[in-house]
Design a protein around this nucleic acid. Structure first.
Lengths: 113, 113
DNA sequence: CAAATACATTCAAGGATGCTTATATATCTA
DNA sequence: TAGATATATAAGCATCCTTGAATGTATTTG
């Protein structure tokens, strides 16, 4: 699996409402499981499951502190993705000029306008 | 559904190998279904299905030119996401300083180092 | 050492996705 | 207008994802 495929895999993992919230929080600093439990309003096993998926994909990591697991961000793509999500894109992309379809470089018959 | 939730939904849709390829191509210009058919090496209905999902989520749109459908990008988030995916992130994020876990602002007992 | 705390793991159920095959529709050409 | 072209839609099946419930493990406290 090449680098891009790995990144796409990661993106798939990131693209989940709960996990985005987790990652957004982690951009602000280290957090442990029970922090998320309060913050996300979901049960503990579910938090652990999401954290586990993120960890397996090397998106986050943790260190142990007593009985706490202190999670933190590892993948540098995450802040960019989260940033893009939260950005206010006021304008949609400009429409294409007109009709530059590449189908064999030409289309049989006249183009409509 | 708020704006962020919509964006997360979009991200979920975007996070698919075939659809990423489609979107990456569309950042370069307008393309029609049979262009993708050749380029992606998957069958026509499958291409149409992927394009349909992208369209329903307002990520792309098309104009009609004869019997061609000319697809183009609409959502301004896409180039940023694709850019982040293709970027070479050489360095992982810096490790956190140490142990700033927020669990009630304090952890009972001594911290390890 | 027993109980409590913090967290992980496993399993099953239900829903969501993805792909293939078959078929439909619209447009263009002969 | 019949056939070809470009694309869409629908049905069916397999697979993956997500979650809750139950249980397991390590660490710390009393």
């Amino acid at each position: 699996m090449d680098q891009l495929s790995k990144k796409i895999e990661m993106l798939k993992v990131i693209a989940h409402p709960v996990r985005i919230k987790i990652l957004d929080e982690l951009t602000k600093g280290v957090k442990c499981v029970s922090d998320f439990e309060d913050f996300l309003g979901i049960n503990q096993p579910n938090v652990s499951q999401h954290l586990s998926v993120l960890r397996v994909h090397n998106i986050i990591d943790y260190y142990v502190d007593g009985r706490l697991r202190c999670y933190f961000l590892v993948d540098p793509m995450v802040p960019e993705i989260v940033g893009a999500l939260k950005k206010e894109h006021l304008e949609p992309l400009p429409a294409p000029a007109c009709c530059p379809v590449t189908k064999k470089g030409k289309y049989p018959g006249e183009r409509r306008h």
